[in-house]
Computed example of a mutant assay.
Amino acid sequence: MAKQYQAKITSLNGDKIGTQPTGEATFTVDGDTLTVEITMDHTSPNTQHWMHFHGFPDGRDAKPATSAQDTNHDGYVDLPETEPVSGTTMVPFNDRPEKMAIPTDTYPTSDANGHFHYKKEVPLKEMSDKFKEVFNDSDLHLEKRVIYIHGVPDSMDLPDTIQGAVGKYDQHTTLPIATGKIEEVR
């Protein structure tokens, strides 16, 4: 029987970015396939949105960040500020999650209304092998992870205090805009 996990995704930094992103993610493990489906509304329009699950390699239970994680008090919860409660970025939801290549330009882009839908069937063995190579554990432990949606338009004025640049990608790409706890539902 297939195992299913779900996350209700709610806004993070919405008061600062001018929109309150919401959505839902489902993860279905059926045999050697992980089907990931994510639907988001009210994101920044016409913007590519990086999406990942975050967690702790040592197996601790990850929690979604809240405004309480804004340790530098600039009004934003940036990527490094999520790490104490959510852990590290683990698996991307781009064109090839099983490759675990985080910085790519293959994430979904929202439409003019801030909506997008992502669905991907992922070869579970390939992902588990790569996960074991990177995190020394082949079990994804979805029930101990949180999902993050990132990204605001390059034109948005952000303070220099926001951290989280990854290579050529600046804080506009990595700013968390929504998060949710992944829970087993069956």
Results as ranks from 00 to 15, higher is better:
Asn136Met: 04
Val122Met: 05
Pro64Ser: 11
Glu143His: 11
Lys119Asp: 08
Asp30Ile: 13
Thr173Trp: 14
Gly18Cys: 02
Glu133Met: 02
Leu175Cys: 07
Gly151Lys: 06
Ser110Arg: 01
Ala2Tyr: 10
Phe135Thr: 03
Thr179Phe: 04
Lys168Cys: 00
Ala25Ser: 04
Leu140Phe: 08
Lys181His: 07
Thr66Leu: 09
Pro108Asp: 04
Thr88Ser: 14
Ala7Arg: 12
Lys16Arg: 09
Val122Tyr: 05
Pro92Ser: 12
Glu24Trp: 04
Pro108His: 04
Asp41Tyr: 02
Pro64Phe: 03
His73Leu: 12
Asp95Met: 00
Ile182Arg: 11
Leu158Trp: 01
Phe53Cys: 15
Thr39Trp: 02
Leu140Ala: 08
Gly31Tyr: 04
Leu12Trp: 09
Glu83Pro: 10
Pro97Asn: 04
Asn13Pro: 05
Leu34Lys: 12
Glu183Phe: 08
Asp41Ile: 10
Gln48Cys: 06
Lys16Cys: 05
Gln69Trp: 07
Ala178Met: 01
Gly167Thr: 05
Ser110Asp: 06
Met156Tyr: 05
Asn13Val: 04
Phe116Asp: 04
Val134Ser: 06
Met100Asp: 13
Asp111Gly: 00
Thr88Leu: 15
Thr47Tyr: 03
Glu126Ala: 13
Trp50Gln: 15
Ala7Tyr: 09
Asp170Pro: 09
Asp78Pro: 06
